[in-house]
């Protein structure tokens, strides 16, 4: 029951500048977000573009500094510890687009060796480790000599996973790891992630806009909307009885393939024969009478 990662009141403001570089305002990309991830579990952050989910991942990885708030890893405050090596060992990240997260001019083997070299593994062991890692992600060892463009999308993402695992991290951040892949390839990559999680005792922070995938992978889910976590809880209960309007809207928007799934999607009131946007829905709920009453029926 120990928390490997704790996020406490994390906030990130981005300045809005005019044409001369003067600050004319701020955008709250991440707004007072707190959550904790238990060791060995999968925490899902669900949200659309602009929800701040990627900014949170970047702050945990030390690629961006928070405006305020703390990030605790294994009880140690690592806020602002950017790129430090001891820290790099504990948290790694798998990026969304395997096409752009692998250097097109370097072979698979060279890409996987980057973290090995950076963390001081002896050069003589690199080759051996690379083939072990490739085997771990179920790729043949001779892939080490290939270039990314010779690989399929699913294979590239496996390489990215192998690279992230090279330093034996405890927490893996998965930023939409399968959104660029075909559905059958996605299923195989998810299989791999689940298997690896079990074998290596990994903890995952899973970031995605795909609620169907989230439902089947995450133990706990947090729904992000405009930088805030609007609803959080065990995945099954959030999906079965969503409390927040935005969660309901998200669920109602998922294209599904069976009647059972359709039955569990919330009914959203229509405005002019159109699905309302989240802002409209929340604004309507908050004050205006006619539509919100229909919601309550």
């Amino acid at each position: 029951m120990t928390n490997i990662l704790e996020i406490v009141r994390l906030t990130k403001l981005f300045p809005v500048r005019n044409g001369f570089g003067g600050k004319i305002g701020e955008v709250r990309a991440v707004d007072d977000v707190s959550f904790a991830i238990e060791k060995g579990k999968v925490y899902g952050l669900a949200g659309e573009s602009g929800s701040g989910k990627s900014t949170i991942a970047r702050m945990i990885m030390g690629l961006a500094g928070p405006t305020s708030g703390d990030i605790l890893l294994d009880g140690h405050n690592i806020t602002g510890e950017t790129g430090s090596r001891a820290y790099g060992r504990k948290v790694q990240m798998v990026f969304q687009n395997p096409g752009s997260s692998l250097n097109p001019r370097r072979t698979v083997g060279q890409s996987i060796e980057v973290p090995l070299a950076a963390h001081g593994a002896p050069r003589t062991e690199h080759k051996q480790r690379v083939s072990e890692l490739l085997e771990m992600v179920q790729l043949p060892a001779d892939f080490a000599s290939r270039f990314p463009h010779e690989l399929s999308g699913g294979q590239k993402q496996r390489v990215a996973i192998a690279r992230a695992l090279a330093v034996a991290p405890q927490l893996l951040i998965l930023d939409e790891p399968t959104s660029a892949l075909d559905v059958s390839v996605q299923a195989r990559v998810m299989d791999l992630l689940v298997d690896l999680g079990r074998q290596l005792g990994l903890t995952y922070l899973f970031i995605s806009h795909d609620l169907s995938l989230m439902r089947n992978f995450a133990d706990t889910v947090g729904v992000l909307y405009l930088g805030k976590i609007v609803e959080t809880g065990p995945t099954a209960s959030v999906f079965e009885s969503p409390q927040h309007d935005y969660t309901r809207l998200l669920l109602a928007s998922v294209p599904v393939i069976s009647a059972e799934e359709e039955a569990m999607r919330p009914r959203i009131p229509l405005i002019d024969g159109e699905i309302p946007t989240a802002e409209q829905l929340i604004a309507l709920r908050g004050g205006a009478a006619p539509v919100s009453q229909r919601t309550e029926k």
Binding site: G83, Q92, F95, S100, L102, A118
Partner: peptide, 13 residues
């Protein structure tokens, strides 16, 4: 680009 950021997060010099 993501591959540069990836290298940074992996602790490359």
């Amino acid at each position: 680009q993501e591959f540069v950021e990836a290298a940074e997060t992996l602790g490359a010099s």
